[in-house]
Simulated scan of single mutants.
Amino acid sequence: MRLPPPWVRRGILAPLVVLLALLVVVLLPAWLTIALIVSVFVEPRLRTPRLLLMVAVYLLWDASAVVVLFALWVASGFGWRIHSPRFRQAHYRFVARMLGVLFWNAHWILRLEIDVRVPEGFHDDERPRVIASRHAGPGDSFILIHAVLNWFDRSPRIILKDTMQWDPAVDVVLNRLPNRFIAPPPVAGEAGRPRRRGPRRDRIRPAVPLTARIADLAADMGRRDALVIFPEGGNFTPARRARAIERLRTAGLAAAAERAARLMNVMAPRPAGLFAALDAAPDADVFLVAHTGLDRIRTVGDVWRELPTDKTITMQVWNVPRTEIPDEHDARSDWLMAEWERIDRWIGSRGSPA
């Protein structure tokens, strides 16, 4: 589904979310009573009221964020100073607190625990960072950004899909901070040519290459900034894994395709974006992130079956010294695949399903 323009997302969708949240507050007691009665007689794990309560919490969380973000816009002189360092830090502090509130509720409602394991000396340096993470399960990007802000004490710069802008709070706050949204690839037309997307002006003025946008985002990082990227390009699924392998074969990279086929828990990484960030930020430390706990949750049915989650999300962080990362492209590609093989082995050792 095509993303609506900003005036629709912020002028129509955002107020609708606030109104919907108010409606939920009014009706929640009645809905919870019905859900509890149903759960007592139908399923003993109280999945229905838990799911209902978590949806209500998220709506209220989103609506509250929209209201506060509007107040920040007014306080900045109706947007005049919204991108100043002072208001940028105010937005980062606000996002950190909001994510803390969201995961506090997830802990009590869904019985969700998060165990973050970092290397020794992880919090000691002041250098910028490039953080590359696997991508699997619902909400893993929220969990990672929560960790970066509240546990790593860094200001994240994120590379993420533009479909995240359907959420009004995410749309507003991430567009005020240094982030980059990635549009989906062109859809093939009837004649086999890519179908054009976006407004007419995009057809006349060529778009800036994604690698250049990522490089621009990484180039001016401060000492406590962290660029967060997901080299796999999307959540792990068996179908996407197969397509990643086929993409390498089609490109004539038979050896890389063979190595990718041996990865059971992750997809072959796409190196261009990460390499652009590394080249643009030669002084940044590099950290790789693996995690387990959300591997079995891929569909709405999986979410329902797993409720209450009773899960511990284990997040393992590794540091890779810049001196160990090659400069030459082929050697660097081999290094990245080796690191993803390391992540795959770690996931397998945790008992996650292949």
Rank of each mutant, 00 (worst) to 15 (best):
R196H: 12
A191Y: 15
L27T: 15
D216G: 14
F230C: 00
W335L: 09
A226N: 03
D115A: 08
R2T: 05
L53C: 10
D216V: 00
V95L: 14
P282H: 11
L59S: 05
D327V: 04
L60S: 05
V42C: 15
V130L: 09
D327S: 13
D279A: 12
R332E: 01
R332D: 01
F87V: 00
T33F: 15
W318Q: 03
P321I: 04
R241N: 05
F103K: 03
M267E: 06
V130Q: 01
R129E: 03
L72I: 05
R47T: 10
P119A: 10
D220A: 13
R262F: 05
A71W: 07
T299H: 11
W151Y: 15
S349Q: 13
V57K: 05
Q165I: 01
R332A: 05
G234C: 08
A212H: 14
N319M: 11
I182A: 07
A251S: 10
R129M: 11
V55N: 14
I131Q: 00
G77P: 00
V38M: 13
L3T: 00
G301E: 06
N319K: 13
I158L: 12
P238V: 02
L288P: 03
P186E: 03
G189K: 07
G137D: 04
V173M: 10
A277H: 01
R195T: 03
P6R: 11
G139Y: 09
L69W: 02
A212P: 01
R240L: 14
V95P: 00
A290Y: 00
L160T: 08
H123F: 13
P184E: 05
D171S: 04
L149Q: 06
I204T: 10
I109W: 08
R332G: 02
F287D: 02
A96L: 03
R201E: 09
T163F: 15
F287M: 11
D279P: 08
A96S: 11
M315F: 02
G351T: 01
R224G: 01
R10P: 00
E126R: 15
V317L: 08
I325A: 04
D125F: 10
L149K: 06
R305D: 13
D334S: 12
A257M: 03
K311C: 04
R249G: 02
L294K: 02
S64N: 07
R224P: 00
L288C: 08
A30T: 08
L27E: 14
A21H: 09
A255N: 09
L336H: 02
Y58P: 01
S133P: 11
R195F: 07
D62C: 09
K161R: 11
R45F: 11
E339L: 06
P119V: 06
P185F: 10
L288E: 04
Q316K: 13
R157P: 00
W104R: 15
I143E: 01
G192A: 04
R223P: 12
D334Y: 05
P128Q: 05
A188T: 13
R157S: 00
A207N: 12
A21R: 06
D330N: 09
W346M: 01
L99S: 02
E328K: 09
V208A: 12
A284E: 03
W340I: 01
A251H: 09
A183E: 13
V208K: 15
D295E: 15
R196V: 03
A226W: 07
R270M: 11
G79R: 05
M98W: 11
A268Y: 07
F87K: 00
P321C: 06
L19V: 07
I145T: 12
T237N: 06
M315C: 02
P128T: 03
E113M: 09
P269C: 02
L336C: 03
L294A: 04
